[in-house]
Every structure is written in structure tokens, then in C-alpha cells.
Design a protein around this nucleic acid. Sequence first.
DNA 1: AGAACCACCTGGCAGC
DNA 2: TGCTGCCAGGTGGTTC
Length: 270
Amino acid sequence: MPELPEVETTRLGLLPRVVGRSIRDVVVREPRLRWPVPRDLATRLRGTRVSAIRRRGKYLLFDCGTGHLLVHLGMSGNLTVVPPDRPVRRHDHVDLALDSGDIVRLNDPRRFGAVLWVRDPAHHALLDGLGVEPFEEAFDGEYLHRASRGRRAPVKQFLMDSRVVTGIGNIYANEALFAARILPSRAAGRIALGRFERLAREIRVTLERALAAGGSTLRDFVGSDGAPGHFQLEYAVYGRQGEPCPACGRPVSASRHAGRSTFHCASCQR
DNA sequence: AGAACCACCTGGCAGC
DNA sequence: TGCTGCCAGGTGGTTC
């Protein structure tokens, strides 16, 4: 589910309801997420005030007193703000009860998500190997060009490598490569600077458009207010095999790379 | 160092 | 209708 636009949509929705609030209680119904939810999470969080919610790649960091609550939504996670009387549903694994009465609730059917306590985000194994943010100044065609030299893997895999650039998953890699007219299977190390400059621009444009649409909802993503995104209606190629390419009208091709579905227009992308 | 593959989970859907 | 197999937005770990 969630790539950068979905995680950011979640973050922006949480901000007004959560920042400045104190955590009154924590309920962990199912600790078996990607890693076990720490047993002492409630002890750590109870009584602390959330001073900020930040995003690093696809991770959310709630700044709380002496440390940080780290949340990853995995493939199927949602964080929503619900009223205290909202009935608990299947896969509602973790609740943060706020002093406002609101509950921040994590629902994650596949349990690939994570809820962890992080003392020092600058020196945390999950965070310190991450590459640049797509909206940072350091992210540009020159950066991609430099980072890709010597890489023979397909450029699509290169874009999805979080040590290179964070936040781009399978959907937005496919869409940005179409927008930049680059073949997903092309070896990353064999792409010229000029094409990477266009790609860097198209990545930003694609992510911004998705963010403006509240992200993509294929099955189960909802923002913090429970509303789905609608960027899936604007896909040029993702999931559209056999349908006409929006640029040239020829059918969109489907293939697989590194176990992930890949979509491209054989006529527009080189 | 880089790349290929597996693992972790549930649920929805196509096909029989 | 039910069963089986396959697929899905991620990513750390292992192996070559």
C-alpha cells in the first residue's frame, strides 16, 4: 500500500489532531507485527506529549518526550483518528488514546508494518542507511546519475532501493519511469545524465500529483480521516496492461522484474 | 558491492 | 459453493 504519498497523506491528516496532545494510554492488541511491538511501549509513551510528527522515507516518527514512536505501514497498514466509542475491528492492532479523547488506531491486516520505540533516530538501524528524500535539494539528476554508475540492475529496481532514494515503491516507480519515457528494464548504470535529470523531475511531479489526490487506494489505503485516495484514477500505466497508453494509444505491456509487476509502453519508453 | 531470492502475513480474486 | 493457487502498495536478511 503505502508509498511516500500515502504516508505523507497520513502524516498531514494526523498533525492537527495529534500534535500538542498527550498520550493518555496505549493499547496493544496484537504485538506480532514485522517486529514485536515493545512490551514497555505503553510505559514509555503514557503521559508524554507529541511535539511533532515527521516522515523519513516511508517511516513516521512521533516525537514524544525522551524518544520517538516509529511507525511503518508496511503493505496494508492504516493510521486513523477515531472517536473513543468506535468499535474495534479485525486487525486493529494498536491504539494510542489521546487526552483529547481521540484514538490514533493502527489497522494492518498483513502485519508487515512496525511500531517501535526509537531513542535516537540519527543512529537507528532502520533509518540511518536511508537515501535522500525525493523533495530534498540533494535529490536531482546528477545525484541519480552518480549513484547509479556501475549498477547493472534495472533502473526500476534502482529507484525502489531505499538506500538510494526513499519513498518510491512499485506504483510510483512505474509511473515516474513512464513520465520520463525510460524503459523500466534499462540498466541503471547505462542511463545518461540528461535522462536522469528528467527522471528526477518526473519523480517529484508524480509524487506531488499523488499527494494532491490523497494518495492511491487500490484495496485498503485510507488517510487518517478514513477517506481513500484517488490517484489510482490517474495511473498512466500501473495495472493497465492491454489498455491504451495515454500518450500514443498502443497497449500497455506488463512484465515482472525482481518479483514485482512492471508496466510500460514499449513505444514511448526507451 | 551488487544482485537474486526468501521470508514475513492476510485477503481477494480467478479458475476449476 | 467451495477449494486451490496466485497476486498485492515493503523491506530486512541470507546467499552467491
